[in-house]
Design a binder for these strands. Structure first.
Lengths: 209, 209
DNA sequence: ATTATCTATAGATCTATAGATAATGC
DNA sequence: ATTATCTATAGATCTATAGATAATGC
């Protein structure tokens, strides 16, 4: 079985999913056609429907997967005895680098949510389940530090929104920044590196007494 | 002429533009049809094309208008002798309240930019013209303060990205927040008020020596 | 006369399915 | 036999225009 496959001869079912993913992330659901998906996957348009029946189905699979990816990467809690500020720095860094590895992810999810929220209700409910316990852990750690007096008071919610806001926005603005400042790929990376540093500085400044 | 119009009997041309605006902001370009626009405007679908010829034309008019609205509201420079920190606070406040008055604006623009950037090149060029001089003013003020030693060093670009990031993101997340936390309209407003305050706190903390 | 509005429709997609054919697994 | 893939197409939109009719301005 393993032998019978050439290197890039993945099962067509998978290739279709991957093609769909790529196109949905780039253009959004509305602008992507099953014809485009088929073409990119290297098959006939009918086959897309053979495997996934409807375009909606295909989208839901992908969207749910992305929501899960995001929720499992928002909070990388570190329960070790590392100083709190280092934990926060690491959390920002990991989240930012996750976004860097998936630069189209944030725009995509925000697009679909804000232009099609009703249809996505149920899918988004999955956003709630997992992070709850992790949120609680985070809250416990934060409270402890505040009581110790080692950081300035802030709510868990605010801290998280601040981190996510600062981390996500550069990727939303990336097309505009690239064009406006006429940046090479290398300069884009430098910008992001520099920005990552600045975000850490900002968040830590907010926590400092 | 004035007499001949009933209260809400705006010229159909305008009603079509407004209907299109509302629908584009809510659903994006791709999901909005000229049929929907006509229905909301209270006319026939053909009339949409009579006045604006193509859907693209109609969109471009609106998009350009929104880009202009945004650029004229990003930087409300205050050249008076007010202390710098107060200027920043006011700037954050004005920008945030501008977004509050136009809550669909940020998601809309980000959507269209990230799913259709190529087509919008020329329109976005307008984003550059106006703000340049204002950016320069801001930079001058900031440099002065840094040299005086009254604030911690930061680049104009970073400061602006930080403010925009923090201000914009709550509006991108609003549908999810509403649903996830099950908020009433009043609670949403409270959340935003509180958040506005927190954003100011964060930015000022970053500037404080 | 000129401009605004409507009805009707051509032409272009696009999704989804039916039915034919090719490939594969027993 | 069963599963994967293709060809072809029905049916649903959707944009844009042509041509008819109604409203308005001199």
């Amino acid at each position: 079985k393993i032998n019978s496959m050439k290197i890039d001869d993945k099962k067509m079912e998978v290739q279709i999913l991957e093609a769909a993913q790529k196109l949905f992330l780039e253009q959004g659901f509305a602008k992507t056609t099953t014809g485009q998906i088929a073409k990119l996957a290297g098959c006939n348009q009918a086959l897309v429907h053979y495997y996934y029946r409807t375009k909606d189905n295909l989208f839901d699979k992908i969207f749910e997967d992305k929501i899960r990816l995001i929720t499992t990467n928002i909070l990388a809690i570190d329960s070790s005895e590392t100083p709190f500020e280092q934990k926060i720095s690491k959390m920002i860094k990991l989240h930012f680098e996750f976004l860097q590895k998936n630069p189209k992810l944030a725009p995509f999810v925000i697009n679909e949510i804000s232009s099609n929220f009703d249809r996505l209700h149920s899918l988004i409910d999955k956003l709630q389940e997992y992070p709850k316990s992790v949120f609680a852990q985070m809250e416990a750690q934060l409270k402890k530090e505040i009581e110790k007096g080692s950081i300035r008071s802030i709510s868990t919610k605010d801290l998280l929104i601040t981190i996510v806001s600062l981390n996500v926005t550069p990727f939303l603005m990336l097309p505009v920044i690239k064009k406006t400042l006429n940046l090479t790929e290398k300069e884009v990376n430098e910008f992001l590196e520099q920005r990552k540093q600045e975000i850490t500085t900002t968040v830590l400044a907010r926590l400092k007494k």
